[in-house]
């Protein structure tokens, strides 16, 4: 590697002192905030202009969603523990926590798919009403973010095998964690907005 490239690109030698990856992830999350903020705004506008709007708990399954909230919050904790293990250089612990996170994320999707399936059997589709349109679109987009997180963590656990000592390794765990917290926070807004209001 040439001196030039290393000097300017090394993670700790940036102009601001913040690693490129970290700055990049924060900017990415900013754009994600704008994306979901738009969806929430649309939800508010549509709901305020609607003559009537169903109560979330009458149409949706609150216990299942509450279970999902617990699952997702727990996974946010385990991802932090995985990051702590990566910092402490404890490979076994890191892998354990990372895989618990992945499993919890999968559990979230399984519960979600039960919810969706239940709606479909009762002939509730996105086209049924504007309420279900909002419900399926926002939770669906959130679900895509969960799937993206699972894919990233799975790749991370694979990549960690040979790159445990890579200079960027800890950073990548941290960025995954930041993203995962964001996914979690979106759900924490979605849950009351859709199910409880």
């Amino acid at each position: 590697m040439s001196a030039t490239a290393t000097q300017a690109l090394g993670p700790s030698k940036t102009t601001t002192g913040i690693p490129n990856g970290k700055l990049g992830v924060w900017l990415f999350l900013t754009s994600e905030v704008m994306l979901f903020a738009t969806l929430f705004t649309s939800y508010i506008v549509l709901r305020m202009s609607a003559p009537s709007w169903p109560r979330g708990w009458e149409e949706l399954n609150v216990p299942l969603a509450a279970l999902n909230t617990v699952i997702l919050i727990t996974s946010s904790v385990t991802v932090v523990l995985a990051y702590a293990a990566a910092c402490e250089r404890d490979k076994a612990k890191f892998n354990a926590y990372l895989w618990i996170t992945i499993l919890l994320a999968c559990a979230f999707l399984v519960v979600k798919s039960f919810e969706y399936g239940h709606k479909f059997t009762h002939h509730h589709f996105p086209s049924t009403s504007i309420f279900f349109a909002v419900y399926f679109t926002t939770t669906g987009l959130h679900g895509l973010h969960v799937i993206l997180g699972i894919a990233y963590f799975a790749w991370l656990s694979y990549w960690a095998k040979d790159n445990w000592d890579h200079e960027l390794f800890v950073g990548r765990v941290e960025y995954g964690g930041l993203y995962w917290h964001f996914v979690d926070i979106v759900w924490i807004f979605l849950f009351p907005a859709l199910y409880l209001l």
Partner: peptide, 23 residues
């Protein structure tokens, strides 16, 4: 900051076209 709202808006329009919603 400006492109994500259009992305969201496009997703909603896409839903209107393919999933039969009426955003």
């Amino acid at each position: 900051l400006a492109f994500p709202p259009l992305e969201a808006a496009s997703i909603l329009q896409l839903m209107d076209r393919v999933a039969g919603t009426s955003f």
